[in-house]
Write a protein that binds this DNA or RNA. Structure first.
Lengths: 331, 331
DNA sequence: TTGTAGGCGTTATCAG
DNA sequence: CTGATAACGCCTACAA
């Protein structure tokens, strides 16, 4: 053999004893332990985790799939996951899906081959997802982040998107707004964007206001003035716009101001996610804050829970509305 | 045995033959190949990469260390790495260092145990880095991203920070600015922020302007008005501010506008990195653009080059100045 | 407390 | 073309 064998020889013990110095130090007599440690340092020995993983059938590696890293929501949340995982002795294998379901399947297949202990992911549409269908046949712990709770026994974690926008719409109404619109990226790619739009529609109905058709931008995070313009003219022009994420909201503010509109005097803008940056800009962005760190932390915690035999759970984290200079009563 | 063994039995062949169906399909007779394939599908067989890795002594996993994921520069670059790596059949193990050198050492130690094929990282100060010292004793391919080229035989990749700011300073002077200042986060944590400041100082000297002392913010990505204010008053007040990264620049613009300053009329602001978002805001951010995608792509390419026996190289990628509404001639 | 020995799931070298 | 068989580096009963 090798590795451990050489330190064993140098320490004058058997391979098994040398191994125990690492896996179960307490079983060794103090001086034999020291001899092994000394030998291993002298040789610059480094345990081979691949071998350990093969032997123990457990990798302590978690596979993480995010839609993109270009949106700070996911990047910040991933940062939390990386930190927390490391703290628990887990490493993360990362992949980006761009919401492509075929990609999701390929990546997960590869991660399964790599024997990851579990998976954390955000899928486009959890109720119609090839990768979830495929995972139903495997028995590997899975935690879905951001996706709404499911019937199936999969753990989910995220905020209540419906209520968040429902409440927000009420708030805007109280501020005095009557003509409120909602802006998203390609809607079919996101089950939670749909939930948010539902929340908006319901609230508008309950408030006896007219729910407007969704304003759908070609990109998730970039606004186009030509799409916007028609909605800001005439008697029924919108005085408040709810954007389905912060980048879209910021881009919208940029478009409008560049075109000579005043934000918030002529149009109030609200985002979703609560990314850090939003607070530092002027006007500061009013946004529904998702607890990104907590989201990452608890996703890891949930997965580790599953790994130690706990049952799947659907956690709903609380959101809140961060006020900002991008909203005001209508003129 | 297991796995392969079961499909071998079902297919009525030996384990070796079953294995060859995956590793060297051409060696098999067509019908035996089909039998094996059929059997493996029926059993939902999935090759165990851990075992392969142990056997072949190669993981096709690259370890990546970034300072933080909360700055879109690193997130966007990582996204590129993930995509490109996957395309080449590599997976990425990710860790965040927060510029803590002890963290760097711990993480790298762990990745070495995991037998990563190579490492890609950005360290705080490459000329005085514990982790690089430790890696000098190992022979594992390493690529440094953003850090300036080194004497030692380590591959590096990044833009020429010195020249970028040197040129930028000249540009601002041509615009008419005479009182130009520079803003950074904690300077000791970044060898490239130092390079940039050098570029600024040299340029000011060559232009017969007075190089101002660095304005150092407590945080890397957030500006404080009280630190800023003194520099914007009096006869010698600054009319242009160079910020060492885009988030800091955006935050600075926010601070100033909130305090009633006009950007760019009273103060021009320039950032560094060229993050996407900067273009969509108003005023749009003038910034020195780093080719983030290319940086990620070539980092992976360099590492794979090293893996296949190429010599280390120091690549310098080209930057350019993206103009924007955040600058103008001084009043 | 320490040693012996077998196996985790592959690949790869030999024969047949 | 296919079948035995020995590693890869470590863990872990079981025995001493």
């Amino acid at each position: 053999m090798a590795g451990l064998m050489s330190v064993a020889k140098l320490a004058g013990v058997s391979r098994a004893t040398a191994a125990r110095a690492f896996s179960a130090p307490t079983l060794l007599r103090k001086d034999t332990l020291n001899k092994v440690i000394a030998a291993s340092q002298q040789l610059g020995f480094r345990p081979n985790r691949i071998a350990q993983q093969l032997r123990t059938q457990s990798t302590h590696i978690i596979g993480v799939l995010v839609p993109t890293l270009c949106n700070p929501v996911f990047a910040e949340q991933l940062q939390a996951m990386v930190n927390v995982a490391q703290h628990h002795g887990y490493s993360l294998l990362i992949a980006v899906t761009d919401y492509q379901s075929q990609q999701e399947v390929n990546i997960v297949e590869d991660m399964l081959r790599q024997q990851v202990d579990g998976l954390i992911m955000t899928v486009a549409d959890a109720n119609n997802s090839p990768v979830l269908k495929m995972l139903a046949n495997e028995d590997i712990p899975v935690v879905l982040v951001h996706n709404p709770p499911l019937k199936t026994g999969i753990s989910t974690i995220g905020v209540d998107n419906y209520s968040a926008i429902y409440e927000l719409t009420h708030y805007l109404q109280q501020l005095g707004h009557r003509h409120i619109g909602m802006l998203t990226g390609p809607i079919h790619q996101s089950d939670r964007a749909r939930d948010r739009y539902q929340g908006y529609c319901q609230a508008m109905n309950h408030l006896d206001l007219r729910a407007m058709p969704l304003i759908e931008m070609p990109k998730h995070t970039q606004s186009s003035f030509s799409v916007l313009a028609p909605h800001l003219q005439g008697r029924q022009r919108l005085t408040a716009l709810i954007c389905s994420n912060d980048l879209l909201a910021l881009s919208t503010i940029g478009c409008l101001m560049r075109a000579g509109y005043q934000v918030p005097q002529q149009v109030s803008i609200v985002g979703f996610d609560g990314i850090e940056l939003g607070q530092d800009l002027f006007p500061s962005l009013c946004s529904v804050v998702q607890p990104r760190y907590e989201l990452g932390r608890q996703a890891i915690a949930s997965l580790i829970g599953l790994l130690s035999g706990q049952k799947p759970v659907a956690k709903v984290l609380s959101h809140y509305l961060r006020l900002g200079e991008s909203i005001s009563p209508p003129e």
